[in-house]
Design a protein around this nucleic acid. Sequence first.
DNA 1: CCTCATTTGTTGGAAAAACAACATATTTTT
DNA 2: AAAAATATGTTGTTTTTCCAACAAATGAGG
Lengths: 221, 221
Amino acid sequence: MIENSSLILQSPLFYGINEEDLSHLLPCLKAFTKTYSKNEIIFLAGSTIHHTCVVLQGGVQIVYEDILGNRTIFSRVTNGELFGETFSFFESEPIPISVISDDNTLVLFLDCRQILTTCSSTCKFHHQLIENMLRIFARKNIFLNKKIRYLSKRTTREKLLSYLSDEATASGKGIFSIPFSRQELADFLCVERSAMSTELNKLKKEGILDFHKNQFRFQQS
Amino acid sequence: MIENSSLILQSPLFYGINEEDLSHLLPCLKAFTKTYSKNEIIFLAGSTIHHTCVVLQGGVQIVYEDILGNRTIFSRVTNGELFGETFSFFESEPIPISVISDDNTLVLFLDCRQILTTCSSTCKFHHQLIENMLRIFARKNIFLNKKIRYLSKRTTREKLLSYLSDEATASGKGIFSIPFSRQELADFLCVERSAMSTELNKLKKEGILDFHKNQFRFQQS
DNA sequence: CCTCATTTGTTGGAAAAACAACATATTTTT
DNA sequence: AAAAATATGTTGTTTTTCCAACAAATGAGG
């Protein structure tokens, strides 16, 4: 019986794998867990990493900070999602981002070399793991492409609209919520918070958008 | 003996696979090739795709165009590199980008469903293919992350400097060249061409950067 | 309930980008 | 080699963002 196995099995990385399989797989991946409280540094930009990580509880932020101190939130990674997987394939290269816990957070560490190396004989589930990994990469790729679409817009207004309309579509509902505070949203879209605030309220006055805190809604025309 | 096998084997997707293996693998992936002349549309935004493609000769551009007609070049894909692989994992979703040939271009099409499905018994090389795919995804991820880093900069000047310094580092040489015309570079960095031109020449006057056509060099301080 | 800290909204001036229109340079075509 | 088409550079104006300082609202703790 493995600790946290139910949490682990909820991750898309372990899709199609059962508890029995997991008990073989985890030692093979040299897995271990670690807990963090809020705002602890898990990976620091400039270091090299050798693990792919799964957030089991809580959440972490992927943060890029340039020399001048401009902070950019790449994304927030929560339950079941991965981080570090991209860079763990190029172990010698220093990572350009930091990972910081956003909460009380439980993280599963997996030895990245063991993921690719299909272990001995009976490792059906190992193949499943690699397949899962591919899908996760594809999805992350799509996310990055989306973000690039937002950032490619020239004005704060267009960035907001492209992001929010994506979120509206994704939610499938009229009213949708976003996982960011105003400052975080500004960081995510790489714009000035105050200018963004002004722009949001302009959109509200113009009757295009309605919002209260993190709840948004596009007005019917 | 397979047509174009030497070109195919040069692709990172087929790393570690020999010509003998390839002759088994290609039919299993339902592979076929197609030629395009310059500026032909290979994939059109909004359609759904069912193939992962490898550029065997020439090059293609990954282009995003919004409703207002603002064109953004995501990237240029050339010899041996892939496109479509990300979206082929989610066959039902319409793709948000178009792919346009940039030259006389030879493209290898692979049935995306066959890549994941490890075929029958003896398919060692199929596993190799999946491993290669993972590395390619990881690398593409890093590229997207880089691009996000450039776009996250607030000013044209900073975008230019972050991109060019990355290119300088990557080349390892003092003088380096970039694969873009001025208009393409502006599109890639999502800035105004004329403003970028002004900024480039300002950097030259200030003695920070020197350039002629596509050849750039950072001045020693 | 009050105080303090944090987040969010507002405003005006400075800086930068977008835009437009045109000048110059380069490449392609004939 | 000349003409046409394309790419790049320049300049002045308009628009937008950035920045800073402050005001208002919200939230947390005692």
